[in-house]
Design a binder for these strands. Sequence first.
DNA 1: AATTCGGGGTA
DNA 2: TACCCAGAATT
Length: 359
Amino acid sequence: MNAHADYATRLLAWFDVHGRHDLPWQHPRTPYRVWLSEIMLQQTQVRVVIPYFERFVAALPDVQALASAPQDTVLALWSGLGYYARARNLHAAAQRCVDMHGGDLPRDPVALLELPGIGRSTAGAILSQAWGDPFAILDGNVKRVLARRHAVEGWPGQPKVETRLWAIAEGLLPANRLADYTQAQMDFGATLCTRHNPACLLCPVNADCAAFLQGRVDELPTPRPAKALPEREASVLLLEDGQGRVLLEKRPPTGVWASLWSLPQAADEAQALDWLAAQSPGIVDPVDVDSPSRLQPVQHGFTHFRLRLQPLHWSGLAARHHVRDNDRLRWVARDELATLGIPAPIRTLLLAPRVAQED
DNA sequence: AATTCGGGGTA
DNA sequence: TACCCAGAATT
């Protein structure tokens, strides 16, 4: 038995006893459900995904249903998961499957990779799990496991390091049980070969792990180089009418929170008031723009910057309802909030606004 | 090659 | 806090 077969064999034996066999996308394990789960799981932990997955497949159970759904429905089902480009790409890919692949996800790896939102690792995960085809994955789990097993130096996000890890992953592929092998790697990385305090003494492959043998498990993989986060500020308008409806604005199709519904936003308070003065004839009866109340600022962290939003609140306004649904501006009742894609911090603000604390 | 996309869990 | 997580698309 060579070392490669030995690795896969040992991992699969571990998986049969200790792996996760009751995840919702495993029963039934259809291509559509595997695809949806893999997209949701990009940069997102299993525990977080599960309720979103259940809700999504219940509402849109197959490719056809997804392809024909309105974008707002798809984004509403995604609301809170983050990385909303995933939802827009998933939606567009489903429509392309209907147009070009008979309503099914293609099994051809080239066609699969051409679909938006599916890169090399996700394609490998889908091909191996949906059909048992021999393709490797290289997600965060596998990068960590292989960086340790082969003592690969350097941050795995670095192209040179990633190329090396791909080559190792391809070389370790077994001849069969590909679906289980893919799942085994992810379970192994998520539950045993974890970033902190990995259970090396219980590890089925520790005899071949360079990091373990060298006592360097805590050093590998090399962490991402630290970078200071810039801070941005903005003001948002929370306009409420007498019935508790709020005015929402659909964000542009690119950039942060693309195509989601949020509060009208301006660079600062003065520009927010200017915007209101300019827009008010169309959306409300003239209001006293000098008297908003300041709510508690919303602090929100992104990957690459920190955002501080200062909400300016008016209530009891007289809404003008010739604002059409097709427009970017829309008065939305509290009951309707669940049907729209809304950024998590904005949803929190709408459901539980807090007055600014004196300090 | 570097940057841009959220949100939640965790030490 | 800071970092990480079933990454991909864009520039």
